[in-house]
Design a protein around this nucleic acid. Sequence first.
DNA 1: GCCTTCTACGACGCATCGTAGTATTGCGGG
DNA 2: CCCGCAATACTACGATGCGTCGTAGAAGGC
Lengths: 143, 143
Amino acid sequence: MQKARNILGDLERAVIEHLWAAPHTSSGVTVREVHDAVGVDRGLAYTTLMTVLDRMTKKGLVSRQRDGRAWRYTAASSREALTSETMHHTLGELAGDERRGALLHFLGSSSPEEVDELRSALADLEARQQPADVSGGRSGRPA
Amino acid sequence: MQKARNILGDLERAVIEHLWAAPHTSSGVTVREVHDAVGVDRGLAYTTLMTVLDRMTKKGLVSRQRDGRAWRYTAASSREALTSETMHHTLGELAGDERRGALLHFLGSSSPEEVDELRSALADLEARQQPADVSGGRSGRPA
DNA sequence: GCCTTCTACGACGCATCGTAGTATTGCGGG
DNA sequence: CCCGCAATACTACGATGCGTCGTAGAAGGC
């Protein structure tokens, strides 16, 4: 009985989208604000957003903290982190040798821009680690 | 109305797993064979696998061809291709600048092995295109 | 002709998600 | 001190997807 392959629903997506858009400086967004932002134009009831936020909390997608008798919600992980995590999850289902093939496929069906982005991200990462050891790989420090 | 974020269910996963394991030389696998392979141990009825295969066909996950009065099923895309496609799908939901961040995240949370794999895959791809232009990037051919 | 093997089609149970109503609780104004 | 507003907590309902089967025919084999 392992479930939970659906990362995000449709409304959930819109909601977290809004949370991501909120300034990190704030201590979070109230249900009312989320409703005003993504609920009203869709003609949704306040309680709908409440339920959704509540369920997302239980799933660990968002976190919240008290503010008076209201909750203030924030996204649990950044958009980039969630995307990365999802991609890892997808890739993680493959055995090592298949991963290479999948990555090759991935690159092959990427646009030149994406490849560039990846290349530069790789360079960034490399620079951040051991600027010396570029020869064989197996760069030490994990995590 | 964009749906279809669930790529694979649970049984579906097992089924396509079996199809992937089948020799490509064969012209496909019958329901009977799939049932024997992944259905019997789970105590599933023959018809269950029939339905699942049928639905997967309608979703384009597998393809089939007649063989007498039976169908022979084959996976529509390779495991690697499907994985790659899913990853692209995930990444594709981001805007350009966020993609970079996501990729950085992705690399940052990858094991050294994965980074190596990616690096070598990138090198492969590069070699396959313009063996000359390695200097600046912006590899011409826009797909 | 009867038994087997397949396909087609419909059905049911359960989980998830979008959606919302009702009950409850706490704070501030009169 | 009590009322009502606002926000939360609790519960519910319909749609859809998926796993699971059953039944009804069609096509052959003996």
